[in-house]
C-alpha cells in the first residue's frame, strides 16, 4: 500500500497517504484511539475499499475478523453454533463433526456442548468464541478487535490460540486500542492518528 488515501463518499478522507508493506510471516500491530481510522484501514487492507488516491497491490487470500461473535446464535447449543461457523467457511461435512468436537474439548467445554450458548457465563462465551477461530486456516489475517482474554483458567490456551493463528496465517495484522496478546510476537508496530499511519 503506497501513499493510499481512503474516504467514504464525498466526505473528508479517513486515511491519508498510508504506506504499508506486509510480507509473509509478518506480525503487525497497529494501535489507535476510537475513530482514528483503524476499521477503515482494516477494510482497506482486506480489499473492501478502493483507494481514492495511491496504489495498493495485494496477493493471496485475506481474512478480516471484525466480530468475534460472528454468526453465533444464543438459543442454539455450543455444538450447533460451532457447526454453523464451520460450515459457513468449509465445505467438508464429513470432517465437521470431528473438528467441532476437538474444538469443544480444547475449550474445556465438551461437557456443555449441548447447552444453549445463552446459558453460559460471559467469560465462557468469550472463550468459546475465541476457540472458534481454530476452525479455519487463514491467508493474511486482519483482526479488527482486541481478542485478549482475561480468563484466568484459560491463559495458557489463549497463548496457544495466538500462536496457532500466527502459524495458520501467512501474515497477521492486529488492530487494537490497548494491549493485545500479539504485542509479544509482533515484528512491526504502528500507531494510527487521525488517519495517518506512524511507525513506532
Amino acid at each position: 500500500m503506497s501513499q493510499a488515501s481512503y474516504g467514504y463518499g464525498k466526505g473528508a478522507p479517513v486515511l491519508i497517504n498510508v504506506d504499508l508493506d506486509i510480507r509473509k510471516g509478518d506480525v503487525v500491530v497497529i494501535k489507535g484511539a476510537s475513530a482514528s481510522g483503524k476499521t477503515t484501514l482494516a477494510k482497506a487492507i482486506a480489499g473492501f475499499l478502493s483507494p481514492d488516491r495511491g496504489v495498493v497491490d495485494r496477493c493471496g487470500r485475506v481474512n478480516l475478523l471484525v466480530n468475534k461473535g460472528l454468526g453465533l446464535k444464543p438459543s442454539l447449543s455450543l455444538y450447533d453454533n460451532a457447526m454453523i461457523r464451520y460450515l459457513n467457511f468449509n465445505s467438508s461435512l464429513s470432517t465437521s463433526r470431528r473438528k467441532v468436537r476437538n474444538i469443544l474439548s480444547f475449550a474445556k467445554l465438551d461437557d456443555r456442548s449441548h447447552a444453549a450458548l445463552s446459558s453460559l457465563p460471559s467469560l465462557l462465551k468469550s472463550r468459546f468464541a475465541l476457540c472458534l477461530y481454530l476452525l479455519n486456516s487463514y491467508g493474511l489475517l486482519v483482526i479488527d478487535e482486541n481478542i485478549g482474554l482475561s480468563d484466568p483458567e484459560f491463559r495458557e490456551e489463549v497463548d496457544d490460540i495466538v500462536r496457532y493463528l500466527m502459524e495458520q496465517s501467512d501474515a497477521l495484522v492486529a488492530f487494537s486500542r490497548k494491549r493485545t496478546p500479539f504485542d509479544a510476537y509482533s515484528n512491526r508496530a504502528f500507531t494510527i492518528e487521525s488517519g495517518r499511519l506512524i511507525a513506532r
Binding site: 438459543s75 442454539l76 457447526m83 454453523i84 467438508s92 461435512l93
Partner: peptide, 21 residues
C-alpha cells in the same frame, strides 16, 4: 453447488433458530 450437502446441513441448523422454543 459443489457444497450442496454442507449448505443443506447449514440451513437446517440455522432454520432451527426460527422455531426454537
Amino acid at each position: 453447488f459443489r457444497e450442496f450437502l454442507s449448505a443443506w446441513k447449514l440451513v437446517q441448523l440455522e432454520a432451527n433458530v426460527r422455531y426454537k422454543k
